[in-house]
Write a protein that binds this DNA or RNA. Structure first.
Lengths: 199, 199, 199, 199
DNA sequence: CTTTAAGCGAGACGGTACGTCGCGTCTTCTA
DNA sequence: TAGAAGACGCGACGTACCGTCTCGCTTAAAG
């Protein structure tokens, strides 16, 4: 059938693509980032180096694509934030979970790798915002809008700013390792944010 | 005599040290960070590679030391924040200036380099906090405490948290290039922070 | 019908075969031998690489076949040596012509390529002897036998040896570029050979 | 002492140089020539690739230098040909020995490698002639001149030509594997040469 | 005249080696 | 005798070809 044709066409491509992504994720999670080399990825994926360079221009791009694909695969599910009607409680839940994720070494390393790449490459940064950050932010803003409707958040609050005030301190503290990422800390960020942007 | 020797000795050391720092800063400001190599620094400084490796264990450390020294030279001046008695006005002044700095390319590249290094090296991160971040934060906290005394800031506010809520959004927006660093944005951060932690 | 099939079939095969040979000869004549690659041949011939590998096991074999085919096409003509009745004159004519050929760059490169391949591949060397060298040698020996019959050459001379003494010095001098390939040199080889094997 | 300085200076250099030569010779003797790669040489010599590329521009040049050095080390001894007063006997001795050498696989491979390189690189060919071929030829010519003096060789014979008639057939037969390299063959070349250039 | 399978061009694939760059160490020579 | 200069062993870079493997497309035959 013609249905088979498409998949047949891309089967080999797709197999190597997935092998490359899997190898990249494994290396990023296991190794210091400087040991994540194109050569190591190719070897681990059982793939020629050229197969990587044919598709991506640099190690950064591969790493980014691998982590992006990971998020896209899992992303559809986690995009919706909880909405119990209690914004404060919902945000605390989410912030505590986020803090825990950052503290998990198997998340820490890849996210650091990702941040290292996007900090030094404006094009990757743009792609990151478009493909990863914005969808997440939209989901979060949807929750905030819902809160605005029920009067739990100021109606004229700039939602981008709200999200920054809420998340950026956690992000910075994690990136610079400038303090512990405890539940209490997560809570205090929610409280501060709601004081700033509450009704 | 050893009196002469020591100074002579130190003077030579100091000269090459300054040459290394100058070369490092120049390269960091001019080049993409991956082109900042120990060999390039040594060549530009007119110094043997060993002279660099004798003093610092890695490129990261050199870059960090060069930028640290830069801040320490200039640091004495900017450590004291303005205190006109009007916290909101003082903070807006500082935040607008900070936003401008981040937007300046000749600051942008070095600070990105610095952040790249400390994000991936916990030891450097600790040194960064101790030598650069904490002194600055202490100066800022001094201003906040002064505000608490005159009732412009909640007496029981966690000053570390206040600073994070104030600065982290700006930092994150800059690092991820996720938005413009305008005066209005700087102001809105101050306003949000004062709503959260005001009296 | 199968009668038609064969030819039609052959016609396509033959077209690509000729394209491959033409491309190979062009590349061998134009380029340094290391730049003569299967990929370059395929690209120039407008042919898939597999079409080459389907027919020949290696680049050596293609190059050899291309040059062999060239000789076979032209070969029928030159196989017969002149026989004016004067062996010395006939040999000098042939040797001078041979020397001229070797000096011609458009012959030089292909023949060097051919020699490179057969020097390092015993199987190709055997094929070379069988398909190219022996027919030529037989033609030459026929002329020598004719000379033996009229008493211009020793009747018990080993004709293989005679040919080697006559040609090998020219070949070696060309291969090693160890001296000029002049008419005088060609003549002196004929004279030496006839002194060694004359009546 | 200054005597020590020279050697001290070159000790590391010299050690790696010798290691490279030894590895090259071993590989050339053991492996098919296409498996003799710069990478393999470097690995076997325990040397970085750059150390090879710093000194020689190509694999050809390394192989050539390695084999040249081998000959130069051993060369001083074998340069003098036997001179018993009987040219025919002396030449047969030498030619039989030469034929045996060519038949020895551990000579065959390197000499084929050498010939492959010099056939395709005029510069190497020139160096080969100057450093290897000419000294040997001078030694042989010295023996021939001695023969001329005692009337065993025509006084006006072109000695270059004599040597070519004597050696080139053997060389060509070896290179093209066009016949056996027996003692009888060696003898017949000497006999033919002396018929051509004898008194 | 359609259908079909064989052969083709195109070129991606897993690999190997290339020649270069930079690492961090080691050695030499100079001031 | 410290330091500039830079060679060294090493390992990764990004590229070129290798020989193999799909993939559609063409195309001439058999249905």
């Amino acid at each position: 059938m013609s249905n088979e044709k498409g998949p047949d066409h891309s089967r080999r491509k797709e197999r190597s693509r997935q092998a490359i992504f899997a190898a990249t994720r494994a290396l990023v999670a296991e190794e210091a980032y400087k040991n994540v080399t194109v050569e190591a990825i190719a070897a681990r994926a059982g793939v020629g180096k050229q197969t990587i360079y044919r598709r991506w221009p640099s190690k950064s791009a591969v790493v980014f694509a691998a982590l992006l694909a990971l998020s896209e695969d899992a992303g559809g599910l986690s995009v919706a934030l909880p909405d119990t009607g209690d914004l404060r409680a919902d945000l605390k839940l989410v912030m505590r979970a986020t803090a825990k994720e950052f503290a998990d070494p198997s998340f820490d390393r890849p996210i650091r790798a990702l941040n290292t790449e996007i900090a030094n490459d404006a094009a990757l940064a743009a792609e990151y915002r478009e493909k990863l950050a914005q969808p997440l932010e939209e989901a979060k803003k949807a929750r905030l809008r819902s809160a605005q409707e029920v009067g739990q958040l100021s109606a004229d609050a700039d939602l981008d700013l709200v999200l920054e005030v809420l998340y950026a301190p956690l992000f910075q503290r994690w990136l610079h390792r400038s303090g512990p990422l405890t539940d209490a800390y997560a809570d205090s960020l929610v409280d501060a944010t709601l004081r700033a942007f509450g009704p």
